[in-house]
């Protein structure tokens, strides 16, 4: 791969980043096979444009040209979508297991649906994760080691377990219990995964995020079921399940924001910018959803509305969190303040 510079010149120049003539030199260094296109400035451009002020640091609150301290996540849309799908699958399987415990035939269809959603959710999750990898063909490396310090590694095992158990549940209903247990882990570990980062906003709300993810998973599942044809028993289950989740999600998100905002600069992306807009919208949608649930005399329309609002809300919450995290990673002062203020106390 190479890029051509000065295309309009009579003598344009082509570069692949190294420009070594393989006839006279051998490339065998550690990073000799690092792929590069020679395209200019991506790495730098991504982080900030040209500095337009006098190059000197702010005396009281210094940064390095306001450049990010941290690298923001390279995750695309697939990862927040995965949080949603994984949460959905996990919560569904947990609900399925809980229903199983009731030993009531009237819930059979719902249990089956739970298993299906769980299983399909696991499949989609896997696909999303593989899709987002830099080297998708190496996805199996996730199971190369067992590394308990890495929530992602633990999560890979959890996802594998959940997939296996949910698949097994089609054949042995008892496996549904295992799937339910795995599902609870699947729905919540992503909260740990996000918390266990240096991104100030995520890290600051680490005591809440797994709970928020749990609640949001419940919301997701509850809302999705509301979109299906349901009999009254089923509707009652999902409405109850969903309402608890939605209320909890709203509560957890308020607390998460409070935790993050203990250092003003850290919580800022929750309040400002695109991430702040997403975050607020998500909360409003979820609140709308719960209102639909709690309105007297449930109707199919209300149920559908609630389902859509809840689904979009919880999906949006994941995206909002992703955006807010990235925004706080881009803001060097978020890191500096979050580390300075405890030092100052």
């Amino acid at each position: 791969m190479s890029t051509v510079r000065y295309k309009t010149s009579p003598d344009p120049v082509s570069t692949d980043g190294r420009d070594i003539d393989r006839k006279i030199a051998e490339l065998a260094g550690e990073a000799a096979d690092q792929q590069a296109s020679g395209a200019a400035g991506k790495h730098i451009e991504k982080q900030a444009g040209t500095w337009t002020q006098l190059p000197q640091p702010h005396a009281a609150d210094p940064t390095y040209y306001d450049r990010p301290l941290l690298n923001e996540s390279v995750w695309g849309w697939a990862i927040p979508t995965y949080y949603y799908v994984g949460g959905l699958a996990g919560a569904s399987l947990a609900l399925g297991a809980a229903l199983e415990l009731q030993h009531a035939a009237k819930f059979d269809r719902l249990i089956r649906r739970c298993h299906w959603i769980g299983f399909l959710g696991c499949c989609v999750s896997g696909a999303l994760l593989v899709y987002d990898l830099g080297k998708p063909q190496r996805f199996l490396n996730m199971l190369r080691v067992f590394r308990p310090t890495s929530p992602m590694n633990v999560g890979a095992w959890i996802l594998s377990g959940t997939s296996g158990a949910s698949a097994a549940a089609f054949f042995f209903r008892q496996a549904g219990y295992a799937a339910g247990l795995f599902g609870m882990a699947l729905a919540t570990y992503t909260g740990v995964l996000v918390s266990n980062t240096a991104v100030p906003l995520w890290n600051a709300s680490r005591k809440v995020l797994p709970v928020l993810f749990a609640a949001s998973a419940v919301t997701s599942a509850g809302s999705l079921f509301e979109l299906f044809d349901q009999d009254e028993d089923e509707a009652r289950v999902t409405r109850a399940f969903g309402s608890v989740g939605k209320l909890a999600e709203i509560a957890a998100s308020v607390i998460a924001e409070q935790h993050a905002s203990q250092v003003a600069r850290v919580g800022r992306p929750f309040q400002r910018g695109f991430s702040g807009f997403l975050w607020r919208t998500a909360a409003v949608l979820t609140a709308g959803s719960v209102v639909m649930n709690l309105l007297p005399r449930p109707t199919r329309g209300k149920r559908l509305a609630s389902g859509i609002l809840g689904t979009v809300g919880s999906l949006l919450m994941r995206f909002a969190l992703e955006q807010a995290g990235n925004a706080s990673a881009r803001d060097p002062r978020a890191s500096f303040h979050s580390q300075r203020e405890p030092l100052a106390q």
């Binding site: 260094g29 690092q34 590069a36 395209a39 200019a40 400035g41 040209t50 500095w51 450049r67």
Partner: peptide, 13 residues
């Protein structure tokens, strides 16, 4: 390590 360049951008810093 035979790393490629990181782009040619004047930063003003």
């Amino acid at each position: 390590n035979q790393l490629p360049d990181d782009g040619f951008l004047f930063t003003g810093m």
